[in-house]
């Protein structure tokens, strides 16, 4: 187990380095940030000075080595635009995004798994078919459009819920959270379901097909032949087997929710990391873009590791050994 974690961490370092190289070269190719940052009226001397101050007069490989030297000590550079630590900017915005992604995932799990199970148990009933039809909508409606419609209906027409911002936040261990105030929850009430929609549909489909497959297995018939109640057969024998793929997908999707919350954050003006990224890309603020992507990759790696460990707890056939990995 320990060996597994160590080896996985070493692999992660390789991924992070490769990632940073790609982003560095990629952003370099897009354009010159100086053209955006500097007042067009500035003279050549001011321009030269600004370029030198940001270290952009150096060749790319040298800029990268400078970045790498800083990265080893945890310094991912300073934002070109805000002149503060890039990592600091991201960490400041992170709670908002994590909160949104976490709420969305919770909604997806609480709705998706029971509905999927129901649809799997009653594939021919009207209720089961309705759930499946609904899941197709969840899959195919674009997130931004649903977001706009939610704002139209609940904020503009009915005036029930606020359409933008986080509302009042409360600090918990120094981290500002909206989840703990009524006003904050009201502000979450639209963006969280909006972000959850796709995942609700995904979990419904996954759970349903898992349930339908598991119900045909001999171990389900054997469990019933033992005289177990229906509840125990479904709740223990079937669910335990479905959970294996579901947990994997939940893990991967949680990473994706954090990374791609951008659309929802833009629609609801949610002050999270996604909005920061969009702004940074518009301004070619390379340190922030690089830092953001490195943070996201690290999150993905951490989530995958957690999923692997959880997986071995759910499926006894998977053991995290030195050989298997």
């Amino acid at each position: 187990m320990l060996v597994f974690v160590i080896r996985r961490s070493l692999q992660s370092v390789v991924v992070l380095v490769a990632m940073s190289v790609i982003v560095f070269v990629g952003v370099y190719a897009i354009g010159n940030p100086i053209d955006i940052l500097i007042n067009p009226q500035a003279d050549q001397i001011d321009r030269e000075r600004a370029i030198a101050a940001l270290g952009l007069d150096r060749p790319l490989w040298e800029q990268y080595l400078t970045f790498l030297r800083g990265a080893v000590t945890g310094d991912l550079g300073r934002s070109f635009v805000h002149s503060t630590s890039a990592l600091g900017l991201i960490v400041e915005k992170m709670p908002a995004t994590l909160e949104l992604a976490f709420s969305a995932m919770l909604i997806a799990i609480v709705l998706g798994i029971p509905l999927g199970l129901w649809a799997g148990l009653k594939p021919d009933a009207l209720s089961g078919r309705t759930i499946m039809a609904g899941s197709i909508l969840g899959f195919s409606l674009p997130t931004f459009w649903v977001g706009l419609m939610l704002i139209m209906v609940f904020s503009v027409m009915l005036g029930w819920l606020p359409s933008n911002g986080r509302g009042t936040t409360v600090d918990l261990f120094g981290v500002p959270l909206s989840l703990l105030t009524v006003d904050g929850l009201a502000h979450l009430a639209l963006p969280a379901p909006n972000l959850a929609l796709f995942n609700v549909a995904l979990l419904i489909r996954l759970t349903r097909s898992g349930a339908r497959e598991a119900l045909l297995q001999d171990y389900v018939k054997f469990a019933r032949a033992k005289g177990l109640s229906n509840r125990r057969v479904i709740g223990v024998h079937v669910l335990r087997n479905i959970l294996i793929p579901v947990v994997t997908v939940i893990g991967l999707q949680f990473g994706a929710l954090i990374a791609f919350a951008i659309v929802t954050e833009s629609v609801f003006a949610w002050p999270g990391m996604g909005k920061l990224l969009i702004d940074s890309i518009n301004l070619l603020d390379r340190p922030v873009i690089v830092a953001y992507l490195l943070v996201i990759v690290t999150l993905f790696i951490a989530i995958n590791l957690a999923v692997d460990i959880l997986y071995s707890a759910l499926d006894p056939r998977v053991r995290l050994s030195e050989g298997g990995g």
């Binding site: 001999d218 171990y219 054997f222 032949a225 033992k226 109640s229 499926d315």
Partner: peptide
């Protein structure tokens, strides 16, 4: 249900499939 597994029990063909793997 109370009868099944109590007064009447059943054994199935494929022992690889009848025990729940998890």
């Amino acid at each position: 249900r109370k009868l099944r597994g109590n007064r009447v029990a059943m054994i199935f063909q494929d022992p690889m499939m009848t025990l729940n793997p998890v």
